[in-house]
């Protein structure tokens, strides 16, 4: 019972974050929202008894992707300043 409640709660937060990631004007906020989506996705993978997938999802989806996005955003900002 508690499993179902927690999964529903996590899914609701994930859907809200997906809307933010699509519709928000600010690009940085959208990237952070997508990071939170994969954070919760990895918690749901643990519910489905797949810890290896959860480790991969947490490390790639919520850390490395976000870091690379911010690195690229930083590069774009420097280009803007030069012009």
């Amino acid at each position: 019972m508690i499993h179902v409640i927690i999964i529903i709660l996590l899914s609701v937060v994930m859907i809200v974050m997906a809307f933010v990631a699509i519709h928000h004007k600010n690009l940085q906020v959208a990237v952070i929202a997508s990071g939170i989506i994969s954070l919760f996705a990895s918690v749901i993978y643990i519910f489905l008894a797949a810890p290896d997938v959860a480790i991969t999802e947490a490390s790639i989806g919520s850390v490395i992707t976000v870091s690379i996005f911010f690195y690229v955003l930083n590069k774009i900002r420097h280009e803007d300043i030069k012009k």
């Binding site: 952070i32 480790i55 947490a58 919520s62 850390v63 870091s67």
Partner: peptide, 19 residues
């Protein structure tokens, strides 16, 4: 899994703050 979380989330926050 939670040990991996504890290490990696820290790196993510630091990268965003540096940006």
């Amino acid at each position: 899994v939670s040990i991996v979380y504890a290490i990696l989330s820290f790196i993510g926050v630091i990268v965003i703050a540096k940006y």
